[in-house]
Amino acid sequence: MAVVEYQSPTSVEEAISFLTSSPHAAKVLAGGTDLIIQSKGKYDEPLTVVDIKGIASMVDAELTDDGLKLGPAMSCARLTARDDIKAVYPGLVEAAYLIGSTQVQGRASVGGNLCNSSPAGDTGPALIANRAICVIQGPNGTREVPVEEFTTGVGQNVLEKGDILVQLKFPRPAARTSDAYLRFIPRTEMDIAVAGAGVSITLDGDGTCTDARVGIGAVAPTALLVDAAAQALIGTKLDDAALAAAAQAATDASSPITDRRGTIEYRRHVVGVLVKRAALIAAERAKGA
C-alpha cells in the first residue's frame, strides 16, 4: 500500500466519513509507527490515511473518581508524563513506556498499539489486567467491547469498515489494588516483546490476595486473559507455591511460535517468570494503594 491521500479531520464523524467514502483502502493514522512502515512500497495498492490526532478527544485523557477515559491516540510520551494516571495505573503506564524508544513514544499510542493487533503489542496484557473497555464508534453508532475480546487474531480485530476506536475506559481500581507490566526482551530497550505479562492484584488488610487479573502477551496469536493464573493467586498471600502455580497456569495457557525473537519453549517458560515477578510488584504496590 502506498499513501495517496492524507486527511486530517477535526471530528470523529468527519473521520468516519473519510473512512467510509474512500474509493480505495482507508486506514486510521494515529502515531503511525506501525502504519507508515507497513504502507511502504506496493504502489499499485493506494491508501488513504485519516489522521485522527487533530480530534481533541482522541488525544486527551480524563482521570476521575470513576476511572480513566483515555483518548486512544494520545502519545505514549504524553501519557507517561501524567503522574496522576501513573499513580493509579502504574502497569498501564509502564506498558506505554516500553513501546519503542523515546522517539517512538513521541508518536505511538495505546490505541494504535491495540489496533495494530500484533501478538507482541505491549499494551494488551496491561489493558487486560486493568479491565479496559474499548469504545468503538462507526457508521452505525457506538458500541463497547471488553479489551480481551477486541483482538481476534494476528493483525485482526473487531473493527469494521468505518469503525474507529474512540476511547479506552478503565474502572477505578478498588482499594489496595495495583498493577504491574513486565516484558522480556534480549536488550534493555528497543526490542519487541518476547513475552509480556500484566498483573493486577487486590489485597485485603492482612495481605491476602482477594482479586487478581492476569494478561499475557507475545505467547499466542492475541494477548490472553488467563483466569487460571488469577485463580492461583486469589486467596493466597502470594507465597512461592501460589506464584509457581500462577506461572504454570500462564505457561499452560500460552501457545507461542518459534521465531527470530524466541523459541516456543523459551517463551512458555519466560511468560511464567514474568507473571510471577509482575504479581509480586503489583502486590507491593497494592499495599500502598
Partner: peptide, 23 residues
C-alpha cells in the same frame, strides 16, 4: 527508515520523534 536507529530525530511541536515515522 523504520524508527530503530534515531539518526533522523527531530522535534515536532516540542515532541521528540523519528522523522522517518512522520508523514
Amino acid at each position: 527508515g523504520s524508527g530503530d536507529c534515531g539518526a533522523c530525530s527531530v522535534t515536532v511541536d516540542g515532541e521528540l520523534v523519528c522523522s522517518c515515522l512522520v508523514l
